Amino acid sequence: MEVRTIKVFTTVDNINLHTQVVDMSMTYGQQFGPTYLDGADVTKIKPHNSHEGKTFYVLPNDDTLRVEAFEYYHTTDPSFLGRYMSALNHTKKWKYPQVNGLTSIKWADNNCYLATALLTLQQIELKFNPPALQDAYYRARAGEAANFCALILAYCNKTVGELGDVRETMSYLFQHANLDSCKRVLNVVCKTCGQQQTTLKGVEAVMYMGTLSYEQFKKGVQIPCTCGKQATKYLVQQESPFVMMSAPPAQYELKHGTFTCASEYTGNYQCGHYKHITSKETLYCIDGALLTKSSEYKGPITDVFYKENSYTTTIK
């Protein structure tokens, strides 16, 4: 009895394709271990004539594949690729409408935090270190965002349907971005203890939790000093293409032309909904596939993004 075979390709990165001759009487799992086709788990399936010449994702289970996976995804987590594939199996079914010149995501599976993050990423200057993220990001900007969303979920250790947080998501993504040249110098002034300067680099240099107003941050924000008295913390120097200011959701007025974009969060910790506000020729609110415009805006804002380049204080 002759062994019926077909020729397929296996890959971990969709760049390096490895030619395989597979036995049609055995499952993919018996031949390769966990195997995925377009995100779908085909591990328990036997090869079919229609699979001839198709590319299958496999887990990096030998040295060659491990090197290829690390170079593309910059992670050695053995569960990463499987999590990416199972997320992709959902995100490829989502709709990605162009809204006001940006790629958004039609609401499904509690994905409003991903839509808000995706919209924000198209408006701030950011370059990702893992080629996987950078490639998928370019495709997302062009309207094909399924891979990018699935990668975000995998890097953030999230599953489809789980509630997510924009600030946490951005923080994970910033860790995989090139923020080497970003720098922030802060000064804390206390009447009792004097003053202390701190220099922050990388992710810490672009994120701040405690106030939404970048102007206020430049002037000074009140913080408790270690001595128990009130101290003032203010920005001395900022070198970065953008800054992200966050605070627990509270009524906040966004003035046209003073910011790049913002995240609105309605609801409580267990259950809520994100919308995205962007400042173009007027203010726009993007909620999944829905767009509304207004000249002014007041609502429960939790993150505001500002364009920056270089700032030095005039406070002496």
Results as ranks from 00 to 15, higher is better:
4 R>D: 08
5 T>L: 12
5 T>C: 14
6 I>K: 06
7 K>E: 08
8 V>M: 10
8 V>T: 06
13 D>H: 00
14 N>I: 06
16 N>I: 11
16 N>F: 05
17 L>M: 14
18 H>N: 12
18 H>P: 15
19 T>A: 07
19 T>Y: 12
19 T>D: 08
19 T>V: 12
20 Q>T: 10
21 V>H: 12
21 V>F: 12
22 V>M: 11
23 D>T: 10
26 M>S: 13
28 Y>A: 00
29 G>F: 08
30 Q>F: 12
30 Q>D: 13
33 G>R: 10
34 P>T: 13
34 P>Y: 10
35 T>K: 00
38 D>T: 08
38 D>R: 11
38 D>P: 04
39 G>W: 03
39 G>R: 02
45 I>H: 00
45 I>S: 10
46 K>Q: 09
47 P>H: 02
49 N>S: 09
49 N>T: 11
51 H>L: 01
52 E>P: 04
53 G>P: 01
55 T>H: 15
56 F>A: 02
56 F>K: 01
60 P>M: 10
60 P>D: 03
61 N>I: 11
62 D>H: 09
63 D>L: 12
63 D>K: 01
64 T>E: 11
66 R>E: 11
67 V>T: 12
67 V>D: 15
68 E>Y: 05
70 F>S: 15
71 E>G: 11
71 E>N: 15
72 Y>L: 11
72 Y>R: 12
74 H>M: 04
74 H>T: 02
78 P>V: 12
78 P>W: 11
81 L>P: 12
83 R>L: 05
84 Y>Q: 03
86 S>D: 14
87 A>T: 05
88 L>C: 07
89 N>V: 12
90 H>Q: 14
91 T>W: 04
93 K>M: 15
93 K>G: 11
94 W>N: 00
95 K>C: 11
97 P>L: 09
100 N>M: 12
102 L>R: 01
104 S>Y: 00
106 K>F: 05
108 A>M: 07
108 A>T: 14
108 A>E: 01
110 N>C: 05
111 N>F: 05
115 A>F: 00
117 A>P: 04
117 A>H: 02
120 T>K: 10
120 T>Y: 05
123 Q>M: 03
123 Q>L: 04
124 I>Y: 02
125 E>F: 02
127 K>V: 09
128 F>Y: 07
130 P>Q: 02
130 P>M: 04
130 P>L: 01
131 P>F: 00
131 P>L: 01
133 L>T: 01
134 Q>T: 08
137 Y>N: 02
137 Y>G: 02
141 R>F: 06
141 R>M: 14
142 A>G: 10
146 A>W: 05
147 N>W: 05
147 N>S: 12
150 A>W: 00
150 A>L: 00
151 L>F: 00
153 L>D: 00
160 V>P: 10
160 V>R: 02
161 G>H: 07
162 E>W: 01
162 E>A: 05
162 E>I: 06
164 G>E: 00
165 D>K: 07
168 E>F: 00
168 E>M: 04
168 E>D: 09
169 T>C: 11
172 Y>Q: 15
173 L>W: 02
174 F>M: 07
177 A>S: 13
181 S>N: 11
182 C>M: 04
183 K>Q: 08
183 K>A: 08
183 K>V: 09
185 V>A: 04
188 V>F: 09
190 C>Q: 00
192 T>Q: 11
192 T>S: 12
192 T>M: 09
193 C>F: 04
196 Q>H: 14
196 Q>T: 09
198 T>H: 15
199 T>W: 15
201 K>E: 15
201 K>A: 08
205 A>L: 03
205 A>E: 01
206 V>A: 06
209 M>L: 14
210 G>H: 03
211 T>Y: 02
212 L>E: 06
213 S>W: 05
213 S>C: 08
215 E>L: 05
219 K>A: 14
220 G>F: 03
221 V>H: 05
221 V>S: 06
223 I>E: 13
224 P>N: 15
225 C>D: 00
225 C>T: 03
228 G>Y: 01
229 K>S: 13
231 A>C: 06
233 K>D: 04
234 Y>N: 05
234 Y>G: 04
234 Y>D: 02
235 L>K: 07
235 L>N: 07
236 V>R: 08
237 Q>H: 12
240 S>P: 06
241 P>I: 00
242 F>L: 06
246 S>Y: 03
247 A>Y: 02
248 P>L: 13
249 P>F: 02
250 A>I: 15
253 E>L: 10
255 K>F: 05
255 K>G: 04
260 T>F: 05
262 A>Q: 04
263 S>Q: 00
263 S>L: 07
266 T>M: 05
266 T>V: 14
268 N>C: 07
268 N>I: 09
271 C>R: 10
271 C>K: 14
274 Y>Q: 05
274 Y>H: 08
275 K>R: 15
276 H>K: 07
277 I>H: 04
279 S>T: 08
283 L>A: 06
284 Y>R: 07
287 D>T: 04
290 L>E: 15
292 T>C: 11
292 T>R: 08
293 K>L: 09
296 E>G: 12
296 E>W: 12
298 K>C: 14
299 G>Q: 06
299 G>T: 04
300 P>M: 15
301 I>F: 03
303 D>K: 04
303 D>M: 08
303 D>H: 04
306 Y>P: 04
307 K>S: 10
308 E>G: 08
310 S>G: 09
311 Y>P: 06
312 T>V: 14
312 T>M: 11
314 T>G: 15
315 I>G: 13
315 I>A: 15
